[in-house]
Nucleic acid binder design. Structure first.
Lengths: 114, 114
DNA sequence: GTCGTATTCAACCTCAAGGTTGATTACGAA
DNA sequence: TTCGTAATCAACCTTGAGGTTGAATACGAC
């Protein structure tokens, strides 16, 4: 599994989630695939605009598309979400471990939580 | 702990990470605080540009700043990173749980989507 | 006070993100 | 074949992100 995506992929994925419309789309898709029309319904904007948002999510690898007659159902691609948490957690944990180490060095020997 | 940040905070935080320069800054800060000059050194751009990047990270809640004479050390704010993984994981897990349920209901042992 | 260092403020430029509307393609149904 | 539905393409507009340079501010050292 490629858990070290290149800069460009991370750029696109984080940028894709930096928009409330696209986050709502992701939230909706977490409950199952949907068509463009279904995804557009709750949003007060043109179908074309929503179509563009989906395109952004697709380029970021966050969703995939299949074909069903003239419909193009959109599916969540959870591996991409996983890569994002992997990136974030990597540095979050480095930071936390460093903090614990400092604590261990600076504080008199004492009870530590598991 | 507020693990349900409003749209605006999520916008800013995801947008902040959607830039390789800012991600490198976060990576650097995971190993400890640093001044603007130190953060700018590895980047082939003006100090002012890096200062702006730091401002973006600060507005997103991802870093905080202290004062030390004329220096303004930048510190990582790991809680903000935690909020991001919380958002992502929420929908990733909804999706996965749904998938497992569907699998249990629908599949005789067989190939589905990759 | 004056000087050097650290950082920000301000004005400016360029380009792409996110929206609009109108035309076009792709497909199933009748 | 024609019609209706689903979705995309294309042209356009506005705004803000990310960079530049030059001036201003804040502080410690001398």
């Amino acid at each position: 599994m490629d858990l070290e995506p290149d800069d460009d992929q991370l750029d696109r994925a984080f940028l894709a989630l930096a928009d409330p419309v696209r986050r709502r789309i992701v939230a909706r898709l977490s409950r199952g695939p949907a068509t463009v029309n279904e995804l557009a319904a709750p949003h007060a904007m043109s179908l074309q605009a929503v179509s563009k948002h989906i395109h952004v999510l697709e380029q970021a690898g966050l969703v995939t598309r299949t074909r069903d007659a003239q419909r193009r159902p959109v599916h969540l691609a959870p591996e991409a979400l996983e890569r994002l948490t992997a990136w974030i957690d990597r540095y979050r944990l480095i930071h936390e471990r460093r903090f614990r180490t400092l604590d261990a060095l600076l504080t008199p020997p004492q009870e530590q939580e598991p």
